[in-house]
Design a protein around this nucleic acid. Structure first.
Lengths: 113, 113
DNA sequence: CTAAATATATGAAACTATGAAATAATGAAA
DNA sequence: TTTCATTATTTCATAGTTTCATATATTTAG
């Protein structure tokens, strides 16, 4: 079995998992136009420091964002613009689907019918 | 706060979550070149029916795949080629990163299968 | 009925938000 | 210099929630 392929699928899944959270997507969206300090994001996203830090750690571990320290502050930036591109395409699809009548997704609900 | 934006982030996260699994990515990869019956995928992916079915349900619920019934068999296909495009871009990035010295996660097995 | 596909229940593992504690850089005071 | 206080960020411990694979059941078409 192609363990190389399997490894790539696993890696791909890890990246998707890292993006599979609204807060982290919001963070990426924030970083789209340039780097931001943690402090700034805490304020603009209205999150607790610990919580944001954890989400940033997830993105960092997957190599989706990179950091730079400057004195007390740590600045986060997108590590690869292509990832933003992939996000943008998905977003585009979702907007289209919403526009087409939004008969697409049921946010939660794995329950009875 | 733009609850519409938040909704979109949530939706986006749902889609990412649906893709955040190696098996489901493998399924999508399989469907890249055309529709497939569940039976065929059970065989080619070497999975239990119930398990594959669960994964297919996740993809179905998020509108990532669509189905067509023909007699006993149900054929799955990709619902939107753009989603495949987004996947392809991510894959491309990951391959680049692996090539760049694989200082990403676990460098292993650069050989043939 | 039989075969194909889906749905449900269950327990282990992973994810998330939170407050408290720990680490890191800076500057001022002793 | 060393020590202390302050600010910024991360890590830890927790509890509640969600996901996944397995083992059944249940639905659906012929």
């Amino acid at each position: 079995m192609s363990s190389t392929e399997d490894r790539l699928f696993a890696l791909h899944a890890e990246v998707c998992k890292a993006m599979a959270n609204p807060i982290r997507l919001k963070v990426l969206s924030t970083l789209q136009h340039g780097e931001q300090s943690v402090e700034a994001m805490v304020k603009s996203l209205k999150l607790r420091k610990a919580n944001l830090s954890q989400h940033l750690a997830v993105l960092r571990q997957r190599g989706i964002v990179a950091t730079r320290r400057e004195g007390l502050h740590i600045y986060y930036r997108c590590a690869n613009p292509k990832m933003l591109k992939a996000c943008a395409i998905l977003r585009e699809v979702l907007l289209e689907q919403l526009a087409e009548g939004g008969r697409l997704i049921n946010p939660v609900n794995r329950g009875r019918k």
